[in-house]
Computed example of a mutant assay.
Amino acid sequence: MCAQVVLAEDDAKQAELVRRYLEREHHQVVVVGDGRAALEQVRRLQPDLLVLDVMLPGVDGLDVCRILRRESDLPVLMLTARTEEDDMLLGLDLGADDYMTKPFSPRELAARVRTLLRRGRQAPSSAEPDQMLRVGGLTVDLDRHELYADGTKVACTPGEFRLIATMAAKPHRVFTRAQLLEQLHGIDQYITTRTIDTHVLNLRKKIEPEPRRPVRLLTVYGVGYKLTDA
């Protein structure tokens, strides 16, 4: 799988190491050292993936992610030296699809990149790729990778789309956090089930008439979540 990747990393040694590993995977890698340049290159090149360090000079990685999510559903893998789980989940809350904490194995990063690229190019396995899923006022167009709520197109990240598409394929079924996590990330010791909670909170803001009183994407206490046709 050959893809174009923008790598935003201001540590020259770290950037060179990551670039070499990604190029061994036959990806084309464009390296930038600050957030403003990352925005410029993403807008110019329309790459397949952005690998984004949080601590960038000028415009930091969190702001880059926030800005891009208003413009694109480009998959974003965030790199962070912050070890607090709440700090790492902030990146997901802003629309990142995955994160890795430093120091990390470049081989594992390359594997994460493969997973994100494969996920971005494939429809969820729980539904036919040519199927239009409708659950109440929600429509999930798997061919076009688009979500509509009451006829209005909803911007969502690849991770959010995969989660809602998985649940829309089996409405009213209760999914555990672990089951949903496997759909998003597979079996991965570095990702926690709180990732699912973050995606659910973000989706509720986008598809619920009153996000604090959800009627579509419901919590089943002690179990997980389900999507209804309300």
Rank of each mutant, 00 (worst) to 15 (best):
A3C: 07
Q4L: 11
A8N: 00
E9M: 03
D11A: 12
R19A: 11
R24E: 13
E25S: 12
H26M: 14
G33A: 11
A37C: 07
A38S: 01
E40C: 05
E40M: 11
V51L: 10
L52F: 04
P57Q: 03
L62K: 10
L62H: 11
D63C: 06
D63F: 05
L68D: 01
R69S: 03
L74C: 08
L77K: 08
L79S: 00
A81D: 02
A81K: 08
A81V: 03
M88I: 13
G91L: 10
G95T: 00
G95K: 02
G95A: 03
A96L: 02
D97T: 01
T101N: 09
R107N: 13
L117I: 10
R119G: 08
Q122E: 13
S125E: 15
E128F: 09
L133D: 07
R134C: 07
L138C: 07
T139L: 11
T139Q: 11
V140K: 04
D141W: 00
L142H: 11
R144P: 10
R144W: 12
E146N: 07
A149G: 10
T152G: 13
V154A: 09
V154T: 08
E160W: 00
R162W: 05
L163D: 04
L163F: 05
T166Y: 07
H172P: 08
T176S: 15
L181T: 08
H185A: 13
H185S: 10
I191L: 09
I191M: 09
R194E: 15
I196K: 01
D197N: 15
T198R: 13
H199K: 15
V200S: 06
V200D: 04
L201E: 15
R204T: 09
K205E: 14
E210T: 12
P211C: 03
P214C: 04
V215M: 12
T219D: 14
T219V: 14
Y221K: 15
K226L: 13
L227G: 08
